[in-house]
Design a protein around this nucleic acid. Structure first.
Lengths: 200, 200
DNA sequence: CACGGTGATGTGACCGAGTCGCATCACGTA
DNA sequence: TACGTGATGCGACTCGGTCACATCACCGTG
């Protein structure tokens, strides 16, 4: 038998998600979460930096995935192909089996301004990491920035569609559709620019 | 003589900025700010939603500026011209005279994760408002999203350059340079897309 | 087998942000 | 003179988060 009941972090996570679902995020106290997990408030904050962070557990991994995805794109890829590689790597984080859980978390995030603020911050962290690795790879900072914004938009947009969709399917497929749609939008935008600059 | 010393909000703001500059944001207490302003903590939170918000006072106006700017773009404008109109409207918020103040606030924002999170959230709020008005104007949601991201990047990037620059000049000039640089990046990206799609 | 180190936890006190109900007080007005 | 109103003060409270210190089970070593 272990020293203490094992997997304290997992128990805390489970207790938190349950309580949030029962009474909502804001009505749930850190002490209540700890109590249900058979632990104390202090221990809760030893495992999670703050109350919000409980719901974003594992997001740091997304940064590494995106960066590695970009770095792993084959030599000679076009800028968009490099972006695809980075964004697809993100999709590996969310297998179809856990879609139901994600739905619950998503609803929770929408329920509290505090959580939305954190969500936006996480998104910007991913964007910034993606931007940096794209810039290194492509050598053009602004192009990298535009691509990063676009890629993250496709990812989050695809995620929302995937969550809401009644039919099962891999996240990567939905995101791929988004990505090509954005690609087309940029294409027509580029055409506009060239046309107007040659006209003016 | 007024009932109380006038301009409570202004005094709170001044006291806060002074104290933040003296001892830093995190080391400054809400009660201390109120005390220096000759008021109480309760009154402070009647004027500002929370401690962070003190430093983002007036940012709501930016949303309206961007939206109105887009709406005011002349008929027949290209997508980029509409974007220009929206982003330039933002620049009217920061006249060259107040550049020194902005420098101080900028340094402060960089000093605390709490403030950075709020800053990112404000940025995303502006982006979202800009995106919506662009979408309405252009009729293409994805193009609008890409342009909004790009415009906000140009604005914040230009702002950073403007803040750091030793020479005086209007913010709008710097932002205009950024905007055209991003425009060029998108142009070459569009060319890439067309080339690769016609090749594949 | 005894001993000391180590790491995860508990305990209780503490701080600061933010809220709330109620009192106050200066002013305008009937 | 009396009353309504709006900005403020007051004090108590909740909750997130921190900290110093104690505990306790395990592990390795002599």
């Amino acid at each position: 038998m272990a020293r203490w009941e094992p997997d304290a972090r997992g128990r805390l996570l489970h207790a938190a998600v349950d309580l949030f679902a029962e009474r909502g995020y804001e009505a749930t106290t850190a002490a209540q979460i700890a109590e249900r997990a058979g632990l104390t408030k202090t221990t809760l904050f030893r495992h999670f930096a703050d109350k919000r962070e409980i719901l974003f557990q594992g997001q740091e991994a997304l940064v590494a995935l995106a960066v590695d995805g970009v770095a792993g794109a084959p030599a000679g890829s076009t800028p968009f192909e490099v972006l695809h590689a980075g964004v697809f790597a993100l999709c590996t984080m969310h297998p179809a089996e856990r879609r139901a859980d994600q739905r619950g978390i998503d609803a929770l995030l929408a329920s509290s301004p505090e959580l939305q603020e954190r969500a936006v911050f996480k998104r910007s962290t991913i964007t910034e990491a993606l931007r940096r690795s794209l810039a290194e790879r492509l050598g053009d900072d602004r192009q990298a920035a535009v691509l990063a914004d676009l890629g993250v938009r496709a990812y989050y947009g695809g995620f929302a569609v995937w969550i809401a969709s009644p039919v099962d399917g891999p996240l990567a497929d939905v995101v791929a559709d988004e990505l090509t749609a954005y690609e087309a939008a940029v294409g027509s935008l580029g055409a506009t620019t060239l046309a107007s600059s040659s006209a003016g």
